[in-house]
Design a protein around this nucleic acid. Structure first.
Lengths: 234, 234
DNA sequence: CGGGACGTTGAACCAAATCAAAACAGGTGG
DNA sequence: CCACCTGTTTTGATTTGGTTCAACGTCCCG
């Protein structure tokens, strides 16, 4: 869909970025490592549902989310879909040990990302231990989240899954007690390994037990964090 | 249980390893990066069900499996257990971005591991880009496996889960078509997010459809890899 | 040969899925 | 401003895959 967007990257800016890193890689020590993406990244924006990268395509870029929300997905032959993670502002994704992406990534909302060529990032990391350490750290944190999610999918009930989800989202994007979910019910269902109906019913149930209140389907207020924590086994 | 074993590590050998890495870290360039664990690691062995590390304890060591099989587990308050991964000979585990382990690890069978102090490994990695790259690679591969497992737990049926499991184990430890499972049914169930009964029934079903044959409960022969691949959605 | 751990099988049950329909929320255009 | 359309969410009725509960086999190992 937004393939043209992705492909145009190459023609537009990348070659100069490669030259840049080659010429400055040893001068990078003074640079703040957190800002490497900001300095080397090409800003790209994706409309809602735009495809940022596709499973089993060459993993040419690493991405950092500037704004918006991104989902990583895997799809089975018959269309069943699983969302592995949501990435929000500040999150880095697309780091692959092999040559190809191992999942697809799509914009949940309109999203702005910074794209850095994999080769550029690796070249930089080989010169700058702090940056290498940052990349490892990002990967290891993703792994921890994945392990938590494995526990959720393998052993938690629908009620526990939804409670965990709401608490996770509250931590990541709450402004004083209320949160605006960027994704629709189908995305939540595919993240939690449930159906939309079960997600909807469970939300309603949490509202009826005064754990949350649903301003609109996307806007949730935490009524009782302790209630959510209680229902969320841990 | 084997806490004494783990704790004795410190007294026994670690301090000398720290000195060693300090004195030789810059001389390490000629060393084969794959062998760093063999050179720096302290061999430790664990009996069946021995605890190698525990969730939320300080992540003091990184481990490499020499022989045997290890499971990583997370447990909910009420005892529900999820196995995140199995580690076999050659696998590295225990790499944590934070200061504490994020899961427990136990020996499924009698297991020999090499333990390297986290601080030692990180010190080495900061001097040796190849070793840093190796550690990142290990982490990123674990992440990919975790993502595949998330898909399995979120969206696959019991039959598909068991088929996927058998194919995975066949890839990792098959000798000409037959494989000897190191773990019991409860471990398989906790890995696949099922119950022992369902795992057992599903194995029986796969045998009755001539996809596998069960020599004993632990010894499986792949009768029809294509049959398994067919049942295993992907 | 007897006991305990592990594995299989059977029957009843239940949490979540599926199937179906109604309610809701934005847009768009008259 | 309202009527209409389309995509999304909620609610209801029914079904089902997998769990639970219960019993029986099997395999070691002393």
């Amino acid at each position: 869909m937004l393939m043209s967007n992705t492909q145009s990257l190459e023609a537009k800016r990348i070659p100069s970025a490669v030259d840049w890193v080659a010429s400055r890689s040893l001068a990078g020590a003074g640079r703040r490592v957190e800002d490497v993406f900001e300095q080397l990244g090409i800003p790209v924006s994706f409309e809602k549902d735009g495809e940022i990268c596709a499973e089993s395509e060459p993993a040419e870029y690493i991405y950092k989310v500037v704004s918006g929300t991104v989902r990583s997905t895997k799809i089975l032959d018959d269309g069943r879909r699983q969302i592995g993670a949501f990435y929000m502002a500040g999150d880095i994704f697309g780091l692959e040990p092999g040559d190809d992406y191992h999942f697809s990534a799509e914009a949940v909302t309109h999203a702005e990302v910074l794209a850095v060529k994999r080769s550029t990032a690796f070249a930089w990391a080989s010169q700058d231990g702090d940056f290498a350490r940052l990349l490892w750290n990002v990967t290891a944190q993703h792994l921890q989240r994945a392990q938590d999610h494995i526990l959720l999918l393998g052993r938690k009930t629908a009620l526990e899954r939804v409670a965990t989800f709401i608490l996770e989202m509250a931590d990541r994007l709450a402004k004083e007690g209320a949160l605006e979910l960027p994704m629709m019910r189908q995305d939540i269902a595919d993240y939690l390994g449930l159906t939309i109906e079960t997600v909807s019913r469970t939300m309603t149930h949490l509202e009826s037990t005064h754990a949350i209140s649903l301003n609109s389907s996307r806007q949730i207020a935490l009524r009782s964090r302790s209630g959510l924590n209680r229902v969320n086994a841990c």
